[in-house]
Write a protein that binds this DNA or RNA. Structure first.
Lengths: 210, 210, 210, 210
DNA sequence: GATGAATGAGAATTCATTCAT
DNA sequence: TATGAATGAATTCTCATTCAT
C-alpha cells in the first residue's frame, strides 16, 4: 500500500471520525478494526500506533462527543444576556437547520444502531448535561417561569424519556408518529417543569412545507 | 456424558430459561453457546437441534418475556372489578415483595448488565404494553382521575423516562439517589397524566426499616 | 477440509507428539500453532478444543516427558535385585541402542534447538530425578561403592554439568570432542561420587566400529 | 522530540548498554525495540541506523560482554606474580563486594530472566574462557596443586555444572539451598581438579552477618 | 433426539522494519 | 545523523455452527 504520511493530529482525527461513523452505522461490536482501516486506507499498524486498543478509540469518540456537547451547553448557560427560557430554546430548539456542523443537544443524542457507544454517550451526556440544565431551571424558577421541586432529577428523567424520541429508529416510528411524540414530549416537559403551556413551542416549529 | 432424554417442550424451556438467566447476568455478547450448554449439561448438538442460531434463542427469550408481561397486563386491564387507579397500582406497584415468581412491569424492565436483550425487550415492551396502559388511562379519564390529551404517547414517554430508574446500575446511582429519582418519577407521572398529587404513592411505599 | 473424527485420546496424543517434535526441531517460540495444525491437518479449532493455550500444550509435553522419565527411574530404583551400580548403569548406560522407543535418561535430556522446552524439561528433570538417583547413591554408600557427603546436591551438579554433553549441538562440538567430553564426564562423576575409577565404564562402551 | 546529536561511538554504546540492561531484566524476547528507544529517548530510525536488526544488537551485547570477561581472564592469567591458585581465586572468588563495576566471572554468568542472551553468553563464555582457565590449571599441575588429566574438558564440565548455581532462580532454590549447593560445587571442583580439600575455600567465604 | 469432535472464518493485537522528511 | 509515522505479516485465540456417529 502506498505510504501516505500525514500530520499526526490529522491522521488521528481521520481515524476517530471514520470509526465514529462506522460505529454509529453498524454498531461498535459489529465493526472490526479491519473495517475501519480499510475504509481509510491505512494499515493496522497505523491504527494501533494511534490507539492502543479498540475500547480506546471508543473512549476517544465518547470524549470528543461529550466535550463538544458540554462546551456548547456551558457557553449558553453562561450567557448573561439570555433568560432561562431563551437558554432552553438555544439548547433544545430546532433552529440550526441547514448549518452543516451545527451542534444540537437533541441531534447529538441521536445514535441509532448502537449499543456501547449509544449508552456510553447517552448516559454520560445525561450525567454531564443535567447539572447545567438544572441550573438554568433554577434560574427560571427565580425568574418565575418554572415551578419544580427537584430540578436535577426532573431534568434527568426528561432526558431519558426524550430518548424514545431520538431512538425513533429503534422503535420504528414513522415521521408522523415522531411528530406526534415530539408534541407530547413538549407537553410533559412543560408540565414537569411547571412552565406555561406553549412556552416550549420552539421544540415544535410550525413549518409551511415538510 | 449420560444421555438424558426429555420431553421436547421441557428441554426447550430448560434451554430458554438457562440462556435467559445467563444473558441477564453476563450479557448476550458475553455468553457463548458453550456456557449455556455446560450450565445445563447438554450437548452442542442438542442446542442446535432446538434453536437454529444464537440470535434465535435471543428472540425466543424476548418473546417469552413479552408474552408473560403482556398477559399480566391484559388480565389486570380486563378486570372489571378494578378502577383505573387500582389497575395502575396492580401493574406499577411494589406490592409483590417476597412472592417468588411475581411479575411486575417495573421488575421485568430491570435488566442489568445487558444490551441486546435489554433494548430488545424494553422497546418491545414499551410498544406492546403502552396501548394497554393507554386504555387504562382513558378509562381513568372517564372516571375523572386522569386528565391528559394523548394517553398513548404520554405513556410511551413515561415508560422510556422511567428507564433512567431501572438503568440505575448503568448510571451509577446510589440507593439514596435511586429513591430520590423514584419520587421524582412519581411526581412527573402524576403531572403528565393530570392525576392528583400523591395518587401514585404506591410507587414509593413507606417502609419501616430499609 | 475433510472432517476426520478420531478418538479424543488419539487426537490429543497426535497433537502432543507433533507439537513435541516441532518444538524440539524449531524451538517453542518459533513454532506457531498454525505450523502444528498444518502438519497434522486439523483445524485451529481442534487445537484449541484440546489445549486452551499455547503454553498449555508446552506443559502437556513437559509432563508427558517427565512422567516417562521418572517412571523409568522409579522402576529401576525399586528393583531389589539390582546393586546400586547396576541401577546407575541401567539409568545412565548406553545400552538401548537400536531399540526404537527405548527410554534413556541421557537421551531424554537431549533437547537441542530449544529454550523454553529445553529448560523447563531439564530443570524439572533434574529436580525430579535427582532425589531418586540420590537414594541410589545412598544405597551405594552402604554397599561401599560410593563415598560422598551430600548425594542430592552432588547429583544435581553432575546432572547440570552433563548438559554440556547433551547440549553438544549448541556448543558445536564434533563427534570426537563429544567422545572426549563423555570420558571426562565419567571421570568427574567417579571422583565426585567417590567411586572406583572405571566403575562407570558403561558410560563409554568400547565400540568396534562407529 | 529534541534532536540530540552525539558522537556515533557514544550513541552506539548507549544503545548497547541500555539494551543489555533491559534484555537482562525482562528477557530478549520480551523487550521490544520500542522499549529500548523509549528508555534512551531516541527514535526508531536511530536504532536502525546503528543496528540492522534486533538479533544484531543481541550479538553486539554478547560480544561486548565476552570481550570484557575474556580481557579480565587474560589479564589475570598473564600475571606472572600470581600462583595458579591465586589466579583461580581472582577469577572465581567472591571478593569484589561493593566495588560497583567489578567484573567477576561468576557474576557475569549470572543472567536471570533470560534465555537467548543467557545461553548465547554462557556457551560462548564457556568456550572462550575454558582455554584460559585450562592453562591456569596446567600451570597448577606443574606447581603441584592440581592433578587432572584433561584440564580443558574438565573445566568445561565444571563451568556447565556451576550453572545450576547461577541458575538458582530458575530452579527455585532458597538462599540456604544455594549456600548448600555452593559448598558442594567447591567440593566437586576440588575433587575434579585433584586439589587439596579446602583449597577453594575462597568460593565460600565465612561471613559474620548475612 | 442426542452427542461432542471438528471446523474455519475472523477478531484483536504485536512488533520488527522501512522510509519520507 | 535523526525523526517518527507508517507498514503488514504473523500470532494467539474465540466461537457460532456443522456433521459423523
Amino acid at each position: 500500500m502506498a505510504r501516505i504520511v500525514k500530520a499526526p493530529e490529522e491522521r488521528r482525527a481521520e481515524i476517530v471520525e471514520t470509526a465514529d461513523r462506522l460505529f454509529r452505522k453498524h454498531g461498535y461490536a459489529n465493526c472490526s478494526v479491519e473495517m475501519i482501516i480499510r475504509e481509510i486506507g491505512v494499515s493496522k499498524g497505523t491504527f494501533y500506533y494511534y490507539f492502543k486498543s479498540k475500547p480506546d478509540i471508543l473512549q476517544a469518540i465518547v470524549d470528543k462527543t461529550l466535550d463538544a456537547i458540554v462546551a456548547l451547553a456551558e457557553t449558553v448557560a453562561a450567557d448573561n444576556a439570555l433568560t432561562a427560557m431563551q437558554k432552553m430554546e438555544a439548547l433544545l430548539g430546532n433552529s440550526h437547520i441547514g448549518e452543516e456542523d451545527s451542534l444540537d443537544v437533541a441531534e447529538m443524542l441521536h445514535l441509532p444502531e448502537n449499543r456501547e457507544l449509544h449508552e456510553l454517550t447517552n448516559i454520560q451526556t445525561v450525567l454531564k448535561l443535567s447539572p447545567i440544565l438544572a441550573r438554568i431551571v433554577e434560574m427560571g424558577i427565580v425568574e418565575g417561569v418554572f415551578d419544580v421541586e427537584k430540578p436535577l432529577e426532573t431534568i434527568q428523567f426528561l432526558f431519558t424519556g426524550a430518548q424514545f424520541l431520538t431512538d425513533g429508529g429503534l422503535f420504528g416510528f414513522s415521521a408522523a408518529e415522531v411528530r406526534s411524540r415530539r408534541l407530547v414530549t413538549q407537553t410533559i416537559i412543560e408540565k414537569a417543569l411547571g412552565a406555561t403551556p406553549g412556552s416550549f413551542d420552539f421544540m415544535n416549529p410550525v413549518r409551511a412545507v415538510e
